[in-house]
Design a protein around this nucleic acid. Structure first.
Lengths: 204, 204
DNA sequence: CTGCCCATGTAAATCGTTACATGATTAC
DNA sequence: GTAATCATGTAACGATTTACATGGGCAG
């Protein structure tokens, strides 16, 4: 059900077309909830049928783009949802399964797995950092829209929460990098010791 | 597709019935890939049709339980999969969406959200630690099965990788706890300063 | 007038959850 | 005998991915 609310959240910052949402989702609410165009259009349809959003075609728009915005019911629905305790999904982590069952593979294959992992999270870190910085200096598009419709007294809180979220994700990415690099160092040590002929315990 | 491989991985440690898998999944391969009984039975059926596992009813078993084990094709399929680079799924994190759009809620509601988050991950940490310790002393059931069918020379590697995985998850859980506690402390400070009458900058 | 981006969808298939259905065995 | 647990599934629904389909506007 979360896509529903990710979209409501997006639209609570600024009205947008389905295309806008699909295009910007990965830099805004959707950076925490990935979704594809096809799914977004479907969800918009169902949100409109539920009366939570309304789509209007600006007169004179030749492309007949439908610009969606929240209805009061939609605002209430979003607010009700965010205040409900989160229910955490079960673990689903293919990377860990691969790692565990790589125990029949040679060390270089395992090292590669961990290097890929670190590389992936270095890229993730960079994109979270961009969002974090763009939030700090208020150049972030969605954020700017949100601030513009809220009293100045609330701005600090809005920025604080958004940065709390992005900061947490930066810390997560950094942890994955550190974990993988630690693991690689330990594997280097293991491999080095395996390459030596078996040693006696005494140094005599 | 990963459930398929989580099950293949499970069965690569020990033969089991669908019921066994469903019961023990959360302490074994399934601790990294949550799944329900109904889905497991379905996947077993499809794995058997694909010739990757085989189910046998032990003669004399009144319950006619089907004990599944990997075929050589299944072993090859698993090995091929784990060595392929992982493709990381898009972000899907309802907690972060809630946090961001809690900016219209009072601080106590936000603090509660973060306390719940910390509590959730304290529980997760504890279960990962149990697995990690049970791996270290070889009392972990699935691990014991796996070790018993592999040469002693490989045991250290098998334990190392499993502990690498559980250790990583412990670190993740700890990070979430730290992040939430940091955030709560910052909110405490904000609230304390908000409760004071607006202060002038000079201390005169 | 051609290729690219804007813009909106539908269809089919797969993956995952929730609810339902059934029967055997074991402990009390 | 009856309740709990063992054991195996099916059905319906919802969420997600992949592929397909269509047409307008704009720059060269």
């Amino acid at each position: 059900m979360s896509l529903r609310y990710a979209i409501l959240g997006f639209l609570s910052s600024t009205p947008a077309t389905g295309y806008d949402i699909a295009r910007d989702f990965d830099q805004a609410a959707g950076s925490f909830w990935h979704a594809l165009r096809s799914q977004i259009y479907g969800e918009l349809k169902s949100l409109e049928e539920a009366g939570l959003i309304r789509g209007k075609i600006a007169r004179g728009d030749r492309l007949r783009r439908r610009v969606f915005s929240l209805t009061p019911a939609g605002e209430a629905e979003l607010q009700g949802w965010v205040e409900k305790p989160n229910d955490y999904p079960g673990e689903r982590d293919a990377e860990r399964i691969k790692l565990m069952f790589l125990d029949g593979a040679p060390w270089p294959v395992i090292r590669r797995h961990l290097q890929d992992h670190a590389a992936h999270h270095r890229a993730r870190f960079a994109t979270w950092k961009l969002q974090h910085d763009a939030t700090g200096d208020r150049t972030h598009r969605q954020l700017a829209g949100r601030l513009s419709q809220r009293p100045a007294a609330e701005h600090a809180k809005i920025v604080f929460l958004k940065q709390l979220a992005t900061e947490g994700n930066m810390r997560r990415a950094q942890l994955e990098i550190d974990w993988a690099e630690d693991a690689i160092a330990r594997i280097d040590a293991i491999e080095a010791s395996e390459r030596l002929p078996p040693q006696r315990r005494s140094a005599g």
